[in-house]
Design a binder for these strands. Structure first.
Lengths: 354, 354
DNA sequence: TTCGTTTTCGAAACCGGTTTCGGCAACAGC
DNA sequence: GCTGTTGCCGAAACCGGTTTCGAAAACGAA
């Protein structure tokens, strides 16, 4: 039973402020504040006494009241772009879970906004930084040259990339080395006897698209296969574009016996194109893709793909950004991870007719 | 070219505060503040002059500095529960888009946290309200008796339900009348000659699960069909549970010729169970479901389902909650919407052998 | 015992806004 | 011409914390 004044059945128990706590203890609010924030000029005895009283009275500082002096709101910003390709839609929940869980662990929160264009994304970053709704930002889906990075760099606002970029000055990042996975896929297929391996790139401009493209070429080189530009289709992020990309490959006079896709969304379309031509996935045509979206298990046969642990990525990004906001140098906050291959039924040995 | 002091090439242009703006205008900060907030005791001439200067200098108040006096941080809180059933995962991106877009339109932001249990959800609500990280909360997936509602009601914190609940005191809400859709589905199937229509309920405890169950019963009654308790399977939210629920229905001595699912996730499993028994969906067995997740178009045949415009729902909820935070009575903030039927290939006339 | 440190805390300024209060000037009414 | 409003703005308090500064008290060394 906390010693509440004499309001008998007031629904909302009055918030306890720093001064209340101080009065209760016979100290000044400055002293109490320093005690709670572990300043060295407070005796251990007092510090403990204050802690216990704060606990008992349920004192919790208002974050915006702290922010006014410290300048820090303890919040991570995230501007999601939801329009264009809906390919990354499925990851959002997992990504959020990782971010917010890691943020909560440090008593931070997550401020989310969504934009439908690059311009609107910059406007939102502008507003969020101007009003100081967040201390720093997570930038997903980074491009080779990325306007968000330029903007935040100019304003001296901390940020962490989920991806990489060309101009690395002041950049911290966490990224999955998808290029290694694509390279692996090519090597694996070559080992199964495939000589002609097609590739469906991701959307132009994004760093990961270029890296996966590079990974494809590296895989070919490592396997001693020639590079035929005809085997590289048009970029595709989703089912329909994937189908037409696969169509151009399969209609070649010398079509590939295997196709590697940069993203699972495109692979969905590859299945369509193959079905349409009477090709059986896994025997007539091998497909390996990347991402690990839930639909891949629904396909027949299930799609072999490299699965990204999006939740873990989010968690790591949050940790890095918090460190960055606390003053760590961006050069010390650069990490890479790997996707995990899910070997399922969509790839097999090359057909003999090849 | 703004008249900046004399720092020549400083990367970060110094933030302009209220006092700076006031000094520039030869006014006091109190006057400027009142001018910007449209107080009636400021002349139009001054108000205009202040506005223009604020625009020119790019003045944006710090939201946490305002909050300290006003008590409002202009932020909507959302605690997502991501663990248990991953059935709602696909909606998250759309829901967020709706919420944050409507919030942005009013210059508010969205604070998101994720929990993996009911207890953790309450802990997060506790922390977010204690630190005042949000002015109010959106409560998705409401239950018949919901601890979150009790908690927020007790603390006098504004909230809006995405769903309904039993004890409506102090509750504002927006919800889709899914019970009407389920009722429609049953009626539609009965009209196609189905006499025995099975039902796969949603997870127990959630209001929508009970409502959809009610809708099923209403649909039967309206169609003059008898209610056979054997036709109601165990609750299922996802593919595996859906498959086993469908199995028990299909293995009845007098199995249904149609199955209505409370959620699309369960319907995925119904397809599995049907395939396993050599039943052709759409002819041997009709299936109609609810939600409109993307996977439904991938199925063969595509699943007939009632699609919810999750983005629009999010947008409306944000608008309602902002009104609620501004003092509107909860009783005036109660709205209902409808899902849209996507008639696809998974339902048809009842087989004659029935 | 005395003097210089060190420890510990109170007092007050401070952060950047909002809100209250009071007074001056302009204006109307008689 | 004098008073009573009204319009408009300055001055200062205020919100709830954090941080600085200085002084009293405790401590150690000589």
């Amino acid at each position: 039973m906390q010693a509440c004044g004499d309001k008998p059945r007031s629904g909302a128990p009055k918030r306890v402020r720093l001064v209340d706590l101080a009065a209760q203890l016979g100290l000044t609010k400055g002293t109490v504040s320093r005690a709670l924030n572990d300043h060295p000029d407070i005796s251990d005895r007092t510090r403990m006494r204050v802690r216990k009283a704060a606990e008992k009275l349920g004192y919790r500082p208002l974050s915006h009241a702290q922010a006014i002096r410290t300048g820090r709101v303890r919040s991570l910003g995230l501007v999601l772009q939801v329009n264009e390709h809906d390919a990354h839609r499925p990851f959002v929940a997992e990504f959020l879970a990782g971010l917010s869980q890691a943020a909560s662990a440090e008593d931070w929160t997550l401020t989310v906004a969504t934009a439908s264009s690059d311009t609107q994304t910059l406007e939102l970053l502008d507003r969020l930084t101007a009003e100081k709704k967040a201390d720093g930002f997570i930038l997903p889906r980074t491009k080779l040259t990325d306007a968000r990075i330029d903007f935040l760099r100019m304003r001296d606002v901390p940020f962490v990339l989920y991806g990489r970029t060309t101009d690395t000055r002041g950049c911290a990042w966490f990224d999955i080395e998808s290029e290694k996975s694509i390279e692996d896929a090519v090597t694996l297929l070559a080992g199964l006897g495939h000589h002609r391996i097609g590739f469906v790139p991701g959307a132009e401009g994004y760093t990961y698209a270029k890296l996966r493209h590079d990974g494809y070429l590296t895989g070919l080189a490592r396997s001693g296969l020639p590079h035929d530009p005809n085997l590289i289709a048009a970029p595709a992020m989703a089912r329909v574009a994937g189908a037409s990309a696969a169509a151009t490959l399969l209609d070649l006079s010398d079509p590939p016996s295997a196709i590697v896709c940069s993203v699972d969304g495109a692979a969905l379309g590859v299945y369509d194109a193959a079905r349409h031509r009477g090709l059986k996935i896994g025997t007539d045509l091998s497909v390996i893709s990347y991402d690990g979206i839930p639909e891949t298990t629904l396909l027949d046969p299930p799609l072999s793909t490299y699965r990204v642990d999006t939740r873990a990525a989010g968690a790591r990004l949050a940790e890095l950004l918090i460190k960055r906001c606390r003053g760590a140098a961006p050069e010390d906050l650069r990490e890479l991870g790997r996707a995990a291959f899910q070997s399922r039924g969509s790839h097999g040995v090359a057909p003999e007719t090849s």
